[in-house]
């Protein structure tokens, strides 16, 4: 069986859930070697659910750097004679994956919805088309969050990375926290999104954010209100924004333009609240409430907040 390298990502003292999901997928495909890179990451790295874990710890790896990280993973691939590298489709994975593929002279599949011995499935046209492939040559793939259940931590063998770390001209000077405490859209289990039906940016802050907070959810938005400047683009769900696949997606005052549906129709359960019974969002919603969001959302918040 061939070897597979899984790139594990650390968040504080934990391995990111998406990395554990990727590790679980990889376990079905061959012998799995995990690589975790960073500064002071050993404790978290040992939780990665792969049989073997390689830890690359260095002060210079404190922040993600495509040149250093790509080189390290490429060296691990060589050492282990691996033929696949899998990682989460995070902002790091989606940046590292293609650079690494070019460095290795391999193929790349980004943001996969499915991965396994019987093929990879990835979205085209914001999920409006699914493209399946069965790579027979080596491949780097990034896999979207929530595509698979996470693997459990177990005690594999651990070793330190022994290759070199190249110099890079990139210098991370700081990390600016934006919306500290906000749940990240692409990692959220629940997303609460608002659209033009909210009528004003103040109503987004009054209705969407508090409901999201009380549910531990991420706050999303339609393109219409992002273009209107009510909320930053980082909140936008849709073809020109983020694609989300939470367990529960609550669309409030969103009509459901095709470009929005492309970004959220992979959610497990969709709830739509809209006063227009003809709104296209109801065609994809599992549960719909036709009515005035300004009456319904406060009730929803008070009942779910408890």
């Amino acid at each position: 069986m061939s070897s597979i390298v899984v790139v594990g990502e650390v968040d504080g003292n934990e391995i990111k859930d998406v990395s554990q999901q990727v590790a679980a997928v990889a376990a079905g495909m061959g012998d799995v070697v995990g690589i975790v890179m960073g500064k002071n990451v050993a404790e978290a790295a040992m939780k990665l659910s792969t049989a073997k874990i390689i830890i690359a710890e260095d002060d210079s790896l404190e922040n993600y750097d495509p040149i250093k990280f790509s080189s390290i993973v490429a060296q691990v691939v060589e050492q282990t004679s691996s033929t696949k590298v899998l990682m989460g489709a995070t902002t790091m994975g989606k940046d590292l994956g293609p650079r690494l593929a070019a460095e290795l002279n391999w193929g790349y599949l980004g943001d996969c919805l499915e991965a396994g011995d019987d093929g990879f499935v990835r979205p085209n046209f914001a999920g409006k088309v699914l493209a399946k492939s069965n790579p027979t040559s080596p491949v780097v793939a990034s896999i979207r969050n929530n595509a698979y259940p996470a693997g459990e931590s177990w005690s594999g063998t651990v070793e330190n990375y022994s290759g070199n770390i190249p110099d890079s001209k990139l210098t991370t000077t700081s990390i600016e926290k934006v919306g500290a405490g906000d749940v990240e859209l692409t990692e959220a289990n629940i997303v609460v999104s608002g659209g033009r039906g909210l009528e004003s940016p103040e109503n987004y802050d009054e209705h969407i954010r508090p409901l999201a907070n009380s549910l531990g959810a991420a706050a999303g938005a339609s393109r219409a209100i992002v273009d209107a400047g009510w909320v930053p683009h980082s909140h936008q769900v849709g073809q020109t924004g983020k694609t989300v696949t939470p367990d529960l997606y609550i669309a409030i005052g969103i009509s459901g333009a095709i470009q929005h549906l492309g970004g959220m129709s992979g959610s497990k359960i969709i709830v739509a609240i809209n006063k227009d019974a003809e709104a296209p969002i109801f065609k994809v919603a599992d549960y719909g409430i036709i009515g005035d969001l300004f009456e319904i959302v406060p009730v929803l918040k008070s009942k779910l907040g408890n």
């Binding site: 391999w106 193929g107 699914l130 399946k132 036709i290």
Partner: peptide, 28 residues
């Protein structure tokens, strides 16, 4: 080194679900 797509398909259509009725916002 690109991986060729073998087959494209449209995602399974999501049927419209249930519309929840009720006399009041609270009931819904």
């Amino acid at each position: 080194n690109d991986i060729q797509t073998n087959e494209c398909s449209l995602p399974p259509a999501r049927g419209g679900g249930v519309i929840i009725d009720g006399e009041s916002a609270e009931e819904k």
